[in-house]
């Protein structure tokens, strides 16, 4: 039983936390792909930027002595960080993507432009924050929640941190809000229409510029949320972006680019795959070692810990080759 709890703490809790981050990030990537038809490589940097904005706001709050009991200040400032990131995202679109769109540039050109935006944001973040590591929990403590399991002989507790709980809550709220927006509201339906058939959307009189703007608003605010959540769960550093953008693309592609629900499923799939791949499975085998025909090695992970991020890339490549349209195609449309 202790071993199962160890498994739960490492794989399930870790996977849910990581999966929430990937899912929220991947929704943005997939929406931008659906509406604007290009792979937005700068998404990871938009997330990092959002996290740094939240970090600055947190410092400001602490300096002003603003705090709420039981809530990490990082979460308190999240809505403001989301708004600010959204404003910057709209600015980036106006400055870099809209002129190319107007010229009728191909998706590839847009992709290269997004690399340019990546470099600019990355350079600016490093210019202001250096390349060191920052933490949201310098002056606050990250609360650990331990739940004892009322069973005989069980000594381990189920462990997770308070930010992890809040992350899952935030993700659930965001996903529900997005669901109602896309299925109930006029603009949300127009977004789906434009992802489905842009020419017909235009012919129907849908104002495509408004839809594009709404897309950036959703993608920008979700990027800020995902980035801040990641920084709260682990730590904040400028090269957060590049480690995160590929797993997020993996999640979006696994779910089928352009499909929001697929992106959520893909995010959790990649999150669980990463935590499960580096988990030491011999822990689970040890109690039944006597019944096994072979000796249980000390460590039995699918891949060594150093290869954690590689898991996402392998899944990505396998899915691209096996089913480039995503593994949920047909189920979600």
């Amino acid at each position: 039983m202790n071993e199962l709890i160890f498994f739960f703490n490492n794989v399930i809790v870790g996977g849910v936390a990581l999966g929430s981050i990937y899912a929220v990030g991947a929704i943005g990537v997939t929406l931008i792909f659906g509406i604007l038809r290009f792979a937005h490589f700068a998404h990871g940097d938009m997330m990092t930027m959002g996290a740094f904005i939240a970090f600055l706001l947190m410092l400001a709050c602490q300096a002003l002595g603003i705090s709420v009991p039981f809530l990490p200040t990082g979460f308190l400032v999240l809505p403001v960080a989301m708004v600010l990131t959204t404003i910057i995202a709209l600015g980036l679109d106006k400055g870099f993507y809209a002129p190319l769109r107007k010229r009728g540039a191909k998706p590839v050109t847009m992709l290269i432009a997004s690399i340019g935006v990546t470099l600019i944001i990355q350079g600016l973040i490093r210019l202001f924050f250096g390349s060191g590591t920052w933490s949201f929990f310098e002056s606050e403590t990250k609360q650990l929640i331990r739940i004892p399991v009322p069973l005989e002989g069980v000594t381990r507790t189920i462990n997770f941190t308070q930010p992890q709980v809040l992350m899952v809550v935030c993700t659930a709220v965001a996903v529900l809000a997005l669901h109602f927006f896309l299925t109930r509201s006029r603009l949300g339906k127009a977004m789906r229409a434009m992802a489905d058939n842009p020419d017909l959307a235009q012919v129907s009189g849908i104002n495509t510029k408004v839809v594009v703007r709404v897309t950036w608003i959703i993608a920008g605010s979700l990027a800020a949320m995902a980035g801040t959540m990641l920084a709260l769960d682990v730590q904040l550093k400028p090269d957060l972006a590049f480690n995160i953008v590929l797993p997020i693309f993996a999640a979006a592609i696994v779910g089928g680019l352009g499909q929001s629900y697929g992106a959520i499923a893909g995010g959790f799939l990649i999150g669980f795959a990463e935590t499960a791949a580096i988990f030491n499975w011999s822990v689970l085998l040890r109690p039944i070692a006597g019944a096994l025909p072979f000796e249980v090695p000390a460590t039995l992970a699918i891949v060594p810990t150093e290869y954690k991020l590689t898991v996402a890339f392998v899944i990505l490549v396998v899915v691209l080759l096996w089913r480039p349209t995503g593994i949920f195609k047909g189920a979600s449309s």
Binding site: R186, K189, R192, D196, N197, D199, L200, V203, I206
Partner: peptide, 25 residues
């Protein structure tokens, strides 16, 4: 109003949602 020759419905949306899109303006 204009009905194009090809690809003139939103295939992933329900019939009623298609009609709603026509009333977007």
């Amino acid at each position: 109003s204009f009905v194009p020759q090809e690809k003139n419905v939103f295939t992933s949306m329900s019939v009623e949602e298609n009609l709603e899109m026509g009333a977007f303006t």
